[in-house]
């Protein structure tokens, strides 16, 4: 297994020496900063009493994080397109393919490398609400649940993007296609309002729905398992894809 970590370390380094990751983080932080500010102003102008059911952590943390899901949906494909599609185009994917390393190790290594970017995003997203600790009582459990949900969702988005990236040699196609796939998964949430079993099924499959509970501070193992299964499924599909390409 140490080879996975070696790959992950180099992948992480490659993400963070490229201007793309920093640009993405900067834009992300600016947009979410504005949203955060708007939420605070709104909260300050309409103060809710202590008996209100919506607290500061809920309103600001929850509001910020649910907006973040949409932005992350737009951003993840930009990072995942590099993983395989761009490398295939540059010809440097061969380095890993010709090394004494299995495909599973390659995919896991790349995914863990991507996780370093997810971790950086989560840190930035944690910092904003935590600033409010200075003048208020935050429900840290809720914030933590929201952050856990966000990281799980980003892992799922990243795994799906990684799979799409393994299908093509054009980074732009990889980005557009994974954006399409993620948006579809997101749209299922809208369709889940349909009556009957279809609505139920779509509601279960929708990628955002499982985040809702965590955002509200409800830690349910179903949601955790959903994201983990989703991630493992797409990573496994990527391994199969790389294997079929060799043949």
């Amino acid at each position: 297994m140490p080879i996975v970590l070696t790959i992950a370390r180099t992948e992480a380094r490659r993400i963070f020496v490229s201007p793309l990751a920093w640009t993405v983080l900067a834009v992300l932080q600016s947009i979410l900063g504005v949203v955060f500010l708007l939420l605070i102003l709104d909260y300050a102008q309409n103060p809710r009493g202590p008996e209100s059911s919506v607290g500061l952590s809920d309103y600001i943390g929850g509001g910020l994080y649910s907006f973040a899901t949409l932005v992350l949906l737009l951003v993840m494909p930009l990072l995942t397109m590099r993983l395989f599609a761009e490398e295939r185009q540059n010809g440097n994917l061969t380095l890993l393919l010709a090394s004494p390393v299995s495909l599973i190790e390659i995919v896991l290594g790349k995914f863990l490398g991507l996780f370093s970017f997810i971790a950086a995003t989560i840190l930035l997203l944690a910092a904003m609400p935590l600033m409010l600790l200075v003048g208020s009582n935050l429900d840290l459990g809720r914030i933590a649940a929201g952050l856990l949900g966000l990281s799980l969702m980003m892992m799922a988005l990243g795994a799906a993007g990684l799979y799409v990236s393994s299908l093509t040699r054009e980074p732009t196609i990889a980005a557009v296609a994974s954006f399409g796939l993620l948006l579809m998964l997101w749209l299922m949430q809208v369709l889940s309002s349909q009556p009957g079993w279809i609505g139920k099924l779509l509601g279960y499959l929708a990628i955002v729905g499982h985040f809702e509970n965590l955002r509200r501070g409800i830690f349910s193992s179903v949601d955790i398992v959903y994201y983990l299964l989703f991630t493992v499924l797409f990573l496994w599909l990527a391994v199969l894809q790389l294997d079929s390409e060799r043949n």
Binding site: N90, N92, S99
Partner: peptide
């Protein structure tokens, strides 16, 4: 593959790394 060294048509280099970083990575991959 441990007994193999392969240079494909396009050199499989990572342009964003330095020569040392890249070669050290290749050494540990093998």
């Amino acid at each position: 593959k441990q007994s193999l060294g392969y240079l494909p048509e396009l050199p499989p280099v990572y342009p964003e790394l330095t020569v040392d970083e890249y070669l050290r990575y290749c050494a540990s991959l093998h």
